[in-house]
């Protein structure tokens, strides 16, 4: 019965893309799962894609064992400040960051494995009133933080074992930056979304704030998930956690908008809404390439093809509970769906 209820629902008009349950990771010791992610772990010359799970007081690393099972490799114990989120560092090995805090992020820590002396460590990266954080390529991390007077947007970089001493600051906009996205294919471009629904673009090399563009009033509190430049336009994938249902667009979870960075004009390219008849608003989600996944207020997880603007699969809520987390693995077409009790299901998409 349980397996049946964890099976994705195929929606009308579905093509071959579906979700297949591959394995299940159960953590009996987890008090309250807060996040899940993946990271590369290399030990004794063997490199594997591992799962990282976080509960409020600890973060665990899981490696794949034989026959679709997972074994816990190590658990980092944290202090009294609760873990809020895992911050993966793309294209790195043996490194992951975490954000800790009460209502807001107050601290970022680096968790690492040193293959040289086969040991697991943790170190403090940054403290402050941190509003947004994102791991960047080339072992870097960007964050926005606020003091009463000003906002700081800072990039820190890491060696294999620690944070580098010198950070780099980017010119802050007046408004608070609430999310970041790297601009794919443009090594020196970084994008952010702000508290007043603007898109800002930086030059990472020079720290310049290049452009501020307003998203529009229809969908407040836009959060950027992905950005890429094509044919002179900047395409941005946004989610709208506070959007209201409209007749024309249904219940939009994600939108793709094309901006002309020269003129700051924009146009909507695609909406990704729930199919008619399915209730539930967007709670939280993740985007990788053209695939988006989101946990809905109904307790289900929905998956969309962003280019088609179509929902391609729906995971119904698990028995006696609901999904709390939906994340794409950093490599491979794999969706991690997590429940608050620490159970994580891995689906092949």
């Amino acid at each position: 019965d349980v397996a049946e209820q964890l099976t994705p629902v195929l929606l009308d008009g579905l093509r071959e893309e579906t979700l297949q349950l591959e394995s299940k990771l159960e953590d009996s010791s987890s008090s309250c799962a807060v996040d899940v992610s993946t990271m590369w772990w290399e030990a004794a010359g063997c490199r594997e894609l591992c799962v990282v799970t976080a509960c409020e007081s600890s973060v665990s690393l899981w490696k794949p064992l034989a026959s679709d099972c997972w074994g816990k490799v190590y658990t980092w114990q944290l202090g009294e400040i609760p873990v809020i989120q895992i911050v993966p560092l793309p294209d790195t090995c043996n490194l992951v960051c975490i954000a800790l805090g009460d209502l807001e992020i107050g601290e970022i820590r680096l968790l690492l494995y040193s293959s040289e002396n086969d040991s697991f460590k943790q170190s403090l990266v940054k403290t402050g009133n941190i509003k947004a954080v994102l791991g960047l390529k080339d072992r870097r991390l960007v964050s926005s933080s606020r003091t009463v007077q000003e906002q700081q947007v800072e990039i820190v970089s890491f060696s294999e074992t620690r944070r580098s001493k010198d950070g780099q600051t980017l010119m802050p906009p007046e408004e608070t930056v609430l999310a970041f996205a790297e601009v794919e294919g443009m090594r020196d471009a970084l994008l952010g979304t702000t508290a007043v629904n603007s898109i800002v673009v930086w030059n990472l090399k020079t720290g310049q704030l290049l452009k501020k563009m307003h998203v529009g009033y229809s969908y407040p509190a836009s959060i950027c998930h992905r950005a890429y430049s094509d044919s002179g336009l900047l395409f941005v994938v946004l989610s709208h956690p506070h959007a209201k249902e409209s007749e024309s667009c249904g219940n939009p979870a994600f939108r793709v908008i094309a901006f002309n960075p020269k003129t700051a004009r924009s146009t909507g390219v695609m909406f990704s809404s729930l199919p008619p008849g399915h209730a539930g608003r967007y709670l939280e989600g993740d985007v990788k390439d053209a695939s988006a996944a989101a946990v809905l207020t109904s307790g289900a997880v929905a998956v969309w093809d962003l280019l088609l603007g179509r929902c391609t699969a729906l995971l119904p809520p698990p028995p006696a509970g609901s999904w709390a987390l939906a994340r794409w693995a950093t490599t491979g077409a794999c969706l991690l769906a997590g429940q608050r009790d620490g159970t994580v299901c891995l689906y092949r998409y």
Partner: peptide, 23 residues
């Protein structure tokens, strides 16, 4: 979308905005 909706498009927008922006 058409160019008229979005205004003149430049393939080198990043370099051009970097040259125009404050240091």
């Amino acid at each position: 979308c058409s160019e008229s909706d979005l205004g003149p498009i430049s393939l080198n927008w990043f370099e051009e905005l970097s040259a125009e922006a404050l240091p």
